[in-house]
Write a protein that binds this DNA or RNA. Structure first.
Lengths: 171, 171
DNA sequence: TATTGTTATACTCTATAACTATA
DNA sequence: TATAGTTATAGAGTATAACAATA
């Protein structure tokens, strides 16, 4: 993603101070991004990189990555669903979902139970440890979400969610 | 990506017809995404997947991927900049930028010229073929951008760009 | 010494094909 | 024959370390 896993927040990049108008003594020549700065696809990518960066910083403390977070929350909210149902809901291929669940199971956060009426499928549940962790993750994600949206305010946040849903569903 | 390169738009996924309110006879139990549907990071990801999917569909005809598109446009707008300057502006590591430029050069779209006053660095330029292609790409991206933002309207589009810039810069 | 471009390398994410066990 | 889960595998994206040429 466009994003990556290894989080090295070392070199805090120097941002421009004067955001209003071209500064008299500009440091760098400033590259013109042209149409990229007016196209949703590119700005989505840059925004997502920034947000995921903050996410990694926040959640590296509990060693949870975005995909793991999403799976844990969805199992917590929908216990007993079949593996493929959850994978589909999250837009993850069931083939890639296997090792993801393996990891959660190995850490004692989730578990597979063979479904009652279909012995092919596994129903997913959180362990007590998993439930406890999710409670913590919910608090963490709220802080994270507020931090990355500081600049756009509450009303901007509300608008952004609505607009993004429109883009995501607009196929 | 969150996104990928191989574009298989085969199975057109069945979308719900009744978008207004819960249908009386629902097909699937509908998984509750819980907080994911209220958090910017997750919705950014879903929106980006949708947009990039459309991008791949559109630009596979000319065999151009997002990163290539961005590089071509920026060279076109800023001819003669050094390799690393362009890489930095696009948030691409210079080490990964090498093969990207290699590809454009091999296709005869761009070229490296050793900089006049610093023989370590390569200045980048588009060839005539490259300039011709970029003109076409600009027309294509406009149509693409309009298509993926159909649902949110012109005002929504304007708002979204502004909000995304706020998120991307808000570090 | 520092910087530019480069190579080699590693890890994550996403994708397809093919297997197995059940239905 | 079809489906759920799985394994193996491949490609793109992104990261670091180390090198040569040049400043």
């Amino acid at each position: 993603m466009p994003y990556n896993n290894r989080m090295t927040r070392k070199n805090a990049k120097p941002r421009r101070k004067n955001a209003n108008g071209p500064a008299p003594t500009r440091a760098a020549p400033a590259v013109d991004l042209d149409v990229l700065d007016r196209v949703v696809g590119y700005l989505l990518r840059r925004a997502q990189l920034a947000v995921f960066h903050d996410f990694f910083e926040t959640f590296s403390k509990v060693n949870v990555r975005p995909a793991q977070f999403s799976v844990l929350v969805v199992i917590d909210r929908n216990p007993g669903l079949k593996q493929t149902q959850i994978a589909d809901a999250l837009g993850i291929k069931r083939t890639n979902f296997v090792s993801l669940v393996d990891g959660l199971e190995r850490r004692g956060l989730a578990e597979r139970r063979t479904a009652a009426h279909d012995r092919r499928s596994s129903a997913l549940y959180l362990t007590d440890a998993g439930k406890t962790l999710v409670r913590k993750l919910r608090r963490m994600v709220e802080v994270h979400d507020r931090r990355v949206t500081t600049r756009i305010g509450e009303e901007g946040h509300r608008q952004l969610l609505e607009l993004l849903r429109g883009i995501a569903d607009g196929r």
